[in-house]
Nucleic acid binder design. Structure first.
Length: 764
DNA sequence: TTAGGTTTAG
C-alpha cells in the first residue's frame, strides 16, 4: 500500500519508518542529486482540489511546510501527486497532517518565483516508486467528499515580518504604524502607503495601488490591524518593501483590545477562521503595549495654532476656489476656541444645504485643501463623514484685524499621511459623532455666538466654572470665614478682582521639593550666561565620545567664538532631528532658538578639563520646543552629564524633561500660575489663591509666556470671569472648589484659601 | 506606471 496511515503519535521522533530512510532537509534538496534513501517531512498547509490532467491521469497538489525552518524562503515546497496515489491522498490528507514522502523526483519548480516556495518541487507517483506516510492529527470523521471540500478552502501560512525575502509573494499580518489614506496617484490608480509592524519588531512599508478605491485596505487609524494576502515582497533601498500584485487582498480590523473582530474588506469571499480571530486578539494585546497610537482625538474645541491634527467630522459644504484649491466646510459639534477664517466664495459656488450651512455658520470651519487632494475633495458627498489627516491649524492675521485668526489648511502632498479618508456610517467613531451632532442644540449655540465673550454669562444667567465635586452643596462665604481650617467647600461667588492684572506676571517657577517659588528668568539672563560661558572654548578632547558625535567650528565674528554641537546617539545611531538631543557649547541665544525648532531637546553645556557640564542653574538646563526648563538651585545636586547615556540607551527615548532632570540630578522647577482671587457672595469676602499647573485655564503654565494665542485665550477667560468695568451686581456668578488651610509662625496664625479641582468651561 | 512615509510655505 503506497499510502499508509501511521498511528497517531505525539512524539514525532518515534515515527516507525523503514530504517534505511534518512530525513532530508528542504535546504539540501537539489535537482539531479540522489535522494533514493531520503525522505521529506512537513506539515500540509495547503491543498488543492483533486483534478484530472489533459491525459486523464488524476492530479493532486499539496504544499508542505518544514516546521524546523520557518524563516527560510525554501521552507515550503510544492508536492505534485499523480495517478492513483493522487486519488488516495485526496481522500485522506488534510491540513495540519504530517506528511512524509520517500522515493520522490526533484524537479525545478516553474512557479517558485511567483509563489516564493522552494526552487524545486517533488513529483510523486506509484510509477516513480514513491511511498507516502502521514500522521493523522485529528480524529477523522470526514468522508472523502468532505475532505475535498476542506481542500477547497486553503489554509494560509503567514510570514512574520522578520522572515520576508526578496522576490517572494507572502501572506502576512501587521499592526498599522503609519499610513497614507488612499490618494490619487500620478498614474492611473489610487495609492495608499502603509507601514506595518509585528511582534518580531520589524517594520514593513507597503505601497499599495488599485484603480478601485474600495480595494485598498480600509485603514482609519494608527493601530488598526491588517491581514494581507498575496503581497509581493521586494527589496528597495536596502529594505524590504511590500507592493500589490495580482490577487492582493486585505482585511482590516480595529486594533482596540476588546472591540468586535469584524473585518473590513471589499473581498466578496474570504477565509476567516477561529485561529485567525485569535491572531487578531493577540496582535491587539501586543500592539497595546508596543505601538504608540495617535493619542486622543482632537476636536475643534481643542485645536491649537501651529498644530497638525486629524479631524473626524461631517461635511456640510464644499466649493471650488481655484484650480489648485478646494474648500470643505465641516463640523464636529464643538466650537473652535479661536476666531477661524472664512474662505470667500460666491454663494452660488457653495454646494450644501443652505439652511444647515446658516445654522452651523459659527460651528463649522473652513478647510482649504490643495493640489492632489482637490480631486478627491471634489468627489465627496455632502453629509458624508470624513477623517481629514494632518490638517494644519495656522495662526494668521490680516491687516484690518485686531486679533489674529486661525486657518485650516490641508496642504498638497501626502507627507505624514496628509489626506482625506471617507468613513463608513457603521464606523464606531462615526456612530459616536452622529449621536453627538444630534445632541447639539443649534438654536442655543447660535444665540451663544451672538454674544461677545464679555456678555456671556452676564446679568441674565449664571456663569459656571466646572468643579470635580458636583455632588457637594454650596457653602456661603460667611460660614467658611467662621469655620476652622482645614476644610473643603464648594462655593458660588463673584470674582470682584484678581491679581496680578498683568497675566504674564502670574507665571512662576515652583520647586515641589523645597516648595519655593521664583520668578521666571527673562531671556537677557540666559543671554548673559551664554556669553559668559562662550569665553571658554570647547575642549577638543571632549569631542566625539562613545555616546555622542560632535561638530565644532569657529564663528565669523570678532571674538572668533568657537561653537561645538554634540549629537547624542540613540542605540548607537543618530536619530531624526526631531528625536535627537543636542548638547551645545558656545552657542548664542539666537542659535539656541533655531536649534530648538529643529531638534527634540537642547542642553547648554560647557567644557571642563575632563568632562562636559551644565551651565549655572540660573540658565535653563534644557530647552524643548518653546519651553525652557530650569532646575532648583537649592535642591539640585548635578550629576555627570554622561548619565544621559542611560536614556540614550533606551529603544525609543522620549527625552521627557522629568527623566532628563532625574539622571542629571536636577530638581525640576515647574511652571505654575499663581493668582489671588477676591471672591464675594453677599455674605462675605475671601481671598483665594489659585495655584495651577494646567487644569484651571486648560493652558499649560509652561507655554503661556511664549504663545501669544494662549495669552489671548487666558485674557479672554479672565474677562469672562471678571468683565472689566462692570458693577458688582452685574458680575457673573462662578462656582468653584476651595480648601482652607492654616499658616502659623511664631507670632501669628492665619487661615488661607486655595482654589483647586476647578476648571473654567466656556459654556456648560 | 503610480510611490517608495518624515508636514506647506497658498
Amino acid at each position: 500500500m503506497p499510502v499508509q496511515l501511521l498511528k497517531i503519535i505525539k512524539d514525532q521522533s518515534e515515527i516507525p519508518l523503514p530504517r534505511h530512510l534518512q530525513k532530508e532537509h528542504l535546504k539540501h534538496l537539489q535537482e539531479g542529486y540522489d535522494h533514493t534513501n531520503k525522505y521529506i517531512q512537513g506539515i500540509v498547509v495547503l491543498s488543492y482540489p483533486l483534478t484530472k490532467l489533459g491525459d486523464g491521469t488524476d492530479f493532486f497538489k499539496i504544499v508542505l511546510q518544514d516546521l524546523d525552518d520557518l524563516c527560510s524562503r525554501i521552507s515550503s515546497i510544492n508536492v505534485l501527486i499523480h495517478g492513483k496515489m493522487a486519488q488516495d491522498c485526496a481522500k485522506v490528507i488534510r491540513h495540519g497532517d504530517t506528511f512524509i514522502v520517500a522515493g520522490f523526483k526533484v524537479v525545478e519548480s516553474p512557479t517558485a518565483r511567483e509563489d516564493g516556495r522552494h526552487g524545486c518541487h517533488l513529483e510523486v507517483s506509484e510509477e516513480a516508486g514513491s511511498t507516502i506516510y502521514y500522521i493523522d492529527t485529528k480524529p477523522r470523521t470526514t468522508t472523502a467528499s468532505e475532505a475535498t471540500s476542506i481542500a477547497v478552502a486553503p489554509q494560509y501560512v503567514y510570514t512574520p515580518l522578520n522572515c520576508l525575502k526578496d522576490g517572494t509573494i507572502v501572506n502576512l499580518y501587521g499592526v498599522v504604524k503609519f499610513f497614507k489614506p488612499p490618494y490619487v496617484s500620478k498614474g492611473t490608480d489610487y495609492c495608499s502607503v502603509v507601514t506595518l509592524v509585528d511582534p518580531s519588531n520589524v517594520k514593513l512599508t507597503c505601497t499599495l495601488f488599485n484603480g478601485n478605491l474600495d480595494s485598498l485596505p480600509k485603514i482609519y487609524k494608527i493601530g488598526d490591524i491588517v491581514r494581507f494576502h498575496r503581497i509581493k515582497i521586494r527589496q528597495y533601498n536596502g529594505q524590504m518593501q511590500g507592493i500589490t500584485g495580482a490577487g492582493f487582498a486585505s482585511l482590516t480590523f480595529d486594533g482596540t483590545v476588546g472591540a468586535p473582530v469584524v473585518p473590513r474588506t471589499s473581498s466578496r469571499a474570504y477565509t476567516f477562521t477561529d485561529e485567525e480571530h485569535k491572531t487578531i486578539e493577540e496582535l491587539r494585546v501586543w500592539a497595546a503595549r508596543n505601538v504608540s497610537t495617535s493619542g486622543p482625538a482632537v476636536k475643534l474645541s481643542s485645536v491649537q495654532p501651529m498644530l497638525f491634527f486629524d479631524l473626524t467630522c461631517q461635511l456640510v459644504g464644499k466649493a471650488k476656489v481655484d484650480g489648485s484649491s478646494f474648500l470643505l466646510k465641516v463640523w464636529d459639534g464643538t466650537k473652535c476656541p479661536y476666531p477661524s477664517w472664512k474662505v470667500p466664495v460666491e454663494a452660488k459656488d457653495l454646494e450644501g444645504e443652505k439652511v444647515l450651512l446658516r445654522q452651523l455658520r459659527h460651528l463649522s470651519v473652513d478647510i482649504l485643501v490643495y493640489d492632489n487632494h482637490v480631486q478627491l475633495a471634489t468627489s465627496l458627498k455632502i453629509g458624508s463623514f470624513l477623517r481629514i489627516y494632518s490638517i494644519h491649524a495656522k495662526q494668521a492675521s490680516a491687516d484690518n484685524e485686531a486679533v489674529s485668526h486661525i486657518e485650516f489648511h490641508l496642504h498638497g502632498g501626502t507627507c505624514y499621511g496628509r489626506g482625506i479618508g471617507i468613513l463608513p456610517e457603521n464606523n464606531l467613531d462615526v456612530k459616536e459623532l452622529k449621536a453627538f451632532l444630534e445632541s447639539v442644540d443649534l438654536a442655543g449655540s447660535q444665540n451663544m455666538e451672538s454674544m461677545t465673550s464679555v456678555e456671556l454669562g452676564g446679568t441674565s444667567g449664571d456663569f459656571t466654572v466646572l468643579t470635580d465635586h458636583q455632588d457637594l452643596n454650596n457653602t456661603e462665604l460667611r460660614t467658611i470665614m467662621n469655620s476652622t481650617a482645614p476644610q473643603q467647600y464648594r462655593i458660588r461667588a463673584k470674582l470682584r478682582t484678581y491679581k496680578p492684572q498683568k497675566l504674564h506676571q502670574s507665571v512662576k517657577l515652583h520647586c515641589s521639593k523645597c516648595n519655593s517659588l521664583q520668578e521666571v528668568p527673562d531671556g537677557d539672563d540666559f543671554d548673559f550666561i551664554l556669553q559668559d560661558s562662550a569665553i571658554t572654548a570647547p575642549n577638543p578632547e571632549l569631542q566625539n565620545a562613545s555616546w555622542y558625535d560632535s561638530v565644532m567650528w569657529t564663528a565669523q565674528d570678532q571674538k572668533q567664538r568657537k561653537i561645538a554641537i554634540h549629537f547624542v546617539r540613540n542605540d548607537e545611531l543618530l536619530q531624526q532631528p526631531e528625536h535627537t538631543l543636542l548638547m551645545i557649547e558656545g552657542g548664542t541665544l539666537k542659535e539656541f532658538w533655531k536649534l530648538t525648532k529643529r531638534f527634540k531637546c537642547v542642553i547648554p553645556v560647557k567644557s571642563t578639563e575632563d568632562d562636559l557640564e551644565l551651565l549655572d542653574l540660573s540658565a535653563p538646563f534644557l530647552l524643548q520646543g518653546n519651553v525652557k526648563y530650569y532646575g532648583c538651585k537649592q535642591c539640585s545636586a548635578p550629576r555627570p552629564i554622561k548619565n544621559l547615556r542611560f536614556i540614550a540607551a533606551e529603544e525609543h527615548p522620549s527625552w521627557e524633561p522629568t527623566e532628563i532632570a532625574q539622571v542629571l540630578g536636577i530638581e525640576l522647577l515647574q511652571y505654575v500660575f499663581i493668582m489671588k482671587f477676591t471672591l464675594v457672595d453677599g455674605t462675605g469676602a475671601i481671598n483665594a489663591y489659585l495655584f495651577d499647573y494646567e487644569k484651571f485655564f486648560q493652558i499649560p503654565a509652561s507655554e503661556i509666556l511664549t504663545n501669544s494665542f494662549l495669552q489671548e485665550k487666558m485674557q479672554m477667560t479672565m474677562n469672562t470671569l471678571c468683565p472689566p468695568g462692570r458693577k458688582l451686581g452685574d458680575l457673573p456668578w462662578l462656582e468653584c472648589f476651595i480648601k482652607s488651610y492654616n499658616v502659623r509662625d511664631a507670632t501669628k496664625h492665619q487661615v488661607y484659601y486655595q482654589i483647586f479641582d476647578t476648571t473654567v468651561a466656556e459654556d456648560v
